[in-house]
Computed example of a mutant assay.
Amino acid sequence: MKSHIRNVSARAKAATYALYPIFKSRLPMRTKLGVYKTYIRPILTYAAPAWYALVRESNRRTMKAQQSAALRKVASAPRYVRNSVIQRDLRIEPIECFITQLARRMFARTETTTFTHLKDIAPWHARPPDRRAYPRELTQDPAPI
């Protein structure tokens, strides 16, 4: 999955720089956020419910960094402002939360569909011996610490 994350990250970075004149303009913040949600976030999250559970934590951090860089450009925030503050002020959920919501909606639709070929597209399975995660596990709440 490392090469896929590199490709996704490079495409998101290219889109961010291509849209930089829009983010630097005097457009309202709401419009800039709409541009981010329309052009950059879909690049980062395309088909993510299928592959995000298979990605290592280091590659997840790469995706978070791309989201943070794009949001920093949207907000025109200086370097000393924390990414969590930018996300909170812009009311943008972290990328892993957004992908979890996407996965929940996708699996809920597959369970309630009338099409038989989609019904069992991602059935519940026991975890394999190599402890690899399944995409369906994105929908589960994290274990309490």
Rank of each mutant, 00 (worst) to 15 (best):
M1K: 13
M1Q: 14
S3P: 07
H4S: 03
A12F: 04
A14L: 13
T16H: 06
Y17V: 00
A18T: 11
Y20E: 04
F23L: 06
K24P: 01
P28C: 02
T31A: 15
L33E: 02
L33A: 03
G34N: 07
V35I: 13
Y36K: 01
T38P: 01
T38S: 10
Y39A: 12
I40M: 09
I40E: 10
R41E: 11
P42T: 09
L44P: 12
L44Y: 05
L54I: 06
V55P: 04
E57V: 05
S58W: 04
T62S: 01
T62M: 07
S68R: 11
R72W: 02
R72S: 07
S76I: 14
P78D: 15
Y80H: 02
Y80Q: 06
R82W: 13
R82L: 09
Q87M: 15
Q87F: 10
R88D: 13
D89L: 11
I92R: 07
I92T: 01
P94F: 00
I95F: 09
E96C: 14
I99C: 05
T100D: 08
R104S: 10
R105T: 09
R105G: 12
M106H: 03
E111V: 13
T113R: 03
T113L: 10
T114V: 14
T116A: 14
T116F: 06
H117Q: 12
L118A: 08
L118C: 08
L118D: 07
K119C: 08
K119D: 09
I121R: 03
I121F: 04
A122Q: 07
H125Y: 09
R127S: 13
R131M: 06
R131T: 06
R132M: 00
R132G: 01
Y134M: 10
R136T: 07
R136S: 06
E137G: 01
L138R: 01
T139R: 14
D141T: 14
P142L: 11
P144I: 00
I145Q: 00
